[in-house]
Design a protein around this nucleic acid. Structure first.
Length: 652
RNA sequence: GCCCAUGUGGCUCAGGGGUAGAGCACAACCUUGGUAAGGUUGAGGUCAUGAGUUCGAUUCUCAUCAUGGGCACCA
């Protein structure tokens, strides 16, 4: 009986006995066999070892070094090389786990040693010399007992713990030279297939990701098939670093941090312009989508957070005001707006006819964050959310969620954030409230997404204790994801604050509370968007939309006339009358990514027209002033990301 | 909070046991100049803070604070 293997191009090959994937590659060409590193089996999207024995009827795709999928295998094997290098240099160091992550890999070591940058250099050197030996990777199947005995004898107790937890009769072992590791693979054929490795950094990391457990020492690295690929990768990283919002914020003078208030941004006059434009934009959307905006207190008696449950669940993150009030009650800065909105809700008697109530608040929040958590504008201690709460009846929940998602889509597309993923987090183990309510809310969230034809992932058991939630993470221009929007159903606050409304039958009923933020915090969004647009804000957000550059002081009168005309349309502009060369000024404003530069010389004064330079470098002369201002105002009002002067509609 | 690294004029960075240097920015003067840096001169720093070692510390040691890369956290 022969063995038939189907290749992904449709070709079927016959073998007298069932081959391994590597043998199939060999039968195609010895070149392919040399380059192959893994195999995709049938519909499975997980890579399998190239040494896998196939069955008749299997459909396979051989992954070679030229396929990008091979990177995962290369990096996995490189992680083993890292561990081998470390144990060769320091035999007393114990190994744990070394997985592949996006763009890189790491290995966690159990040791008291702290790796210094010099150590990392030595390790990288050792890795390179191990690669030169081009050891073959040999896969062996051991009984779990044998593996446990082996690692126990070597004092590798965490490795032993892993095997025992796997609870399998057999485990696979990969050997390279005289070094071996427990691993399910897949791995390269031999270490010569790893063309380039680089150690990236070190870090502490907790065993099992649990901060109450032992801290291990983690080393990060990356690997590629060729040195060129590695260099390209490093270059791309450098580029991303240049667009870091913290650098751009400094360069464009938008915000500033000072150690006298860590984690709390100072927005400069320019940064504040951007911040306020964002806020005004959202306020407009609030009106469009039926929200009411309120202003609520900054400081509350501890009683409020006692009843809301924040004192029990969140007090570590709350700032307490030292001075107590005359009732001897502690005072706290609010970490979130919701309890205040519940107080406002309770002020009135509600009828089912008046719901939903959508209440928005840009209130400043303060949260004590662990020092190591702070990060530019994306993780701060003082911030404002585009926060709103929707108090509604259960039968309104679906349409409210749907409405909120539409609002989110509408807002994201203004920023050109069209690539985002959605996660639905469902009931956790320690949930609060009735299961039936949870099911209804989860159903409302998923139906809303389905009705709008949106794909989403389910995060089983990841919901908050008070209700299920949706998270929206956008992908920025550097392929990183940032969680911005979040919609959270809440059964807890309406209960603890005893909120109700009178239903049709004249009986009290409890409303559902939907927390929702679309941009998340204005601070975080500012940072994320600054990087995403690479500091090229659309005109409506630009701190300075227009700068007027008179060539000499003979053009000052005309400059003032233009400024006045712009200001009539509420367009902010700046006249740069400094005694500097035009090219000097252009360079400066180009670096600041000012959308419109108006260059004025005698030619323009005589013809009473404008010469416009875009930050793309494109020039448009002979523009009529009134016409220009009118169209520019239009561009700003419609939140366009493209200049009206450009034919193609794209961000510039 | 944990591991590693870093902290020098407004910014970017060099230096290094005998109290500091460059470029940009800033100021003054010359230049009124047409699409990415015109010239000259000048002013600016208790070298993050505190303690220790030393005849002497910005430089070495320790602690603190802040920042950066991660981990943990992210109601």
């Amino acid at each position: 009986m022969s063995c038939q293997i189907e290749l992904f191009d449709g070709n079927v090959k016959d073998f007298p006995v069932c081959p391994t994937a590597l043998e199939v590659a060999q039968s195609i060409s010895s070149h392919l066999a040399k380059k192959s590193v893994a195999v995709l089996l049938n519909q499975d999207s997980k890579l399998q070892d190239i040494r896998t024995k196939l069955k008749s009827g299997d459909k396979i795709r051989i992954i070679s070094l030229s396929d990008k999928e091979s990177l995962e295998v290369i990096r996995h094997s490189a992680a083993h090389v890292l561990a081998q290098a470390v144990q060769t240099i320091w035999p007393e160091i114990k190994i744990t786990l070394g997985p592949v992550i996006e763009n890189s890999f790491f290995y966690d070591f159990d040791t008291d040693k702290k790796f210094t940058p010099e150590d990392l250099e030595i390790i990288e050197k050792k890795m390179k010399s191990i690669l030169k030996e081009k050891h073959e990777l040999k896969k062996e199947i051991w009984s779990s007992q044998k593996a446990v005995n082996y690692f126990e004898k070597k004092g590798e107790f965490l490795k032993k713990e892993i095997i025992e937890e796997l609870n399998l009769p057999e485990v696979s072992i990969y050997k390279q030279g005289d070094w071996l590791d427990l691993c399910r693979g897949p791995h390269v054929q031999h270490l010569g297939q790893i063309g380039a490795v680089k150690i990236l950094s070190q870090s502490g990391a907790y065993w099992r990701g649990d901060s109450s457990k032992k801290q291990l020492q983690r080393i990060y690295g990356t690997a590629f098939h060729t040195e060129k690929q590695l260099q390209d990768f490093l270059q791309k990283q450098d580029l991303a670093k240049k667009n870091d919002h913290r650098l751009l914020g400094k360069k464009l003078n938008l915000f500033y941090f000072n150690e006298l208030s860590p984690g709390s941004p100072f927005f400069t006059a320019l940064g504040t312009k951007v911040y306020r434009s964002l806020q005004k934009f959202l306020e407009k959307k609030y009106i469009e989508y039926g929200y009411e905006e309120v202003i609520t207190p900054q400081i509350y008696h501890s009683d409020l957070f006692q009843s809301s449950g924040h004192l029990n669940h969140y007090s570590n993150n709350m700032y307490q005001i030292l001075e107590e009030d005359q009732n001897k009650k502690a005072l706290f800065l609010k970490p979130m707006n919701c309890p205040g909105h519940c107080i406002l809700y309770k002020k009135d008697r509600w009828s089912y006819k008046n719901l939903p109530w959508r209440v928005a608040d840009f209130g400043r929040l303060h949260r004590k964050e662990a020092t190591g958590a702070l990060h530019g504008l994306t993780r701060v201690k003082s911030f404002c959310q585009d926060d709103a709460h929707i108090f509604c009846r259960m039968d309104q929940l679906l349409s409210e969620i749907q409405n909120a998602i539409k609002m989110l889509q509408n807002i994201y597309q203004v920023f050109g954030l069209n690539d985002y993923k959605i996660e639905l987090s469902t009931r956790p183990k320690d949930f609060m409230g009735e299961k039936d309510l949870w099911n209804q809310a989860e159903k409302a969230l998923s139906s809303a997404l389905e009705n709008l034809n949106l794909n989403f992932e389910i995060q089983e058991g990841e919901g908050a204790f008070y209700g299920p939630k949706l998270d929206f993470s956008i992908r920025d221009s550097f392929d990183r994801f940032w969680q911005l929007g979040t919609f959270q159903c809440d059964f807890n606050l309406p209960r603890v604050f005893n909120l109700n409304y009178i239903n049709k039958e004249d009986r009290e009923e409890r409303p559902v509370l939907l927390h929702r933020a679309i941009l998340g915090s204005l601070e975080r969004f500012f940072g994320v968007y600054l990087e995403h647009c690479k500091a090229r804000f659309p005109t409506w957000l630009a701190p300075i939309p227009v700068v007027i550059l008179p060539l000499t002081n003979k053009e000052l009168d005309f400059s003032l006339k233009i400024k006045k005309t712009l200001e009539q349309k509420e367009i902010f502009c700046k006249i740069d009358g400094r005694n500097e060369k035009l090219s000097y000024k252009i360079r400066e404003y180009q670096n600041q990514q000012i959308p419109y530069m108006l260059i004025l010389g005698q030619k323009e004064v005589l013809s009473q027209s404008l010469s416009v330079r875009l930050r793309t470098g494109e020039l448009f002369s002979g523009q009529k002033l009134e016409e220009f201002v009118k169209k520019l105002a239009q561009e700003i009002l419609s939140y366009k990301r493209s200049s009206f002067l450009l034919k193609q509609d794209k961000s510039y």
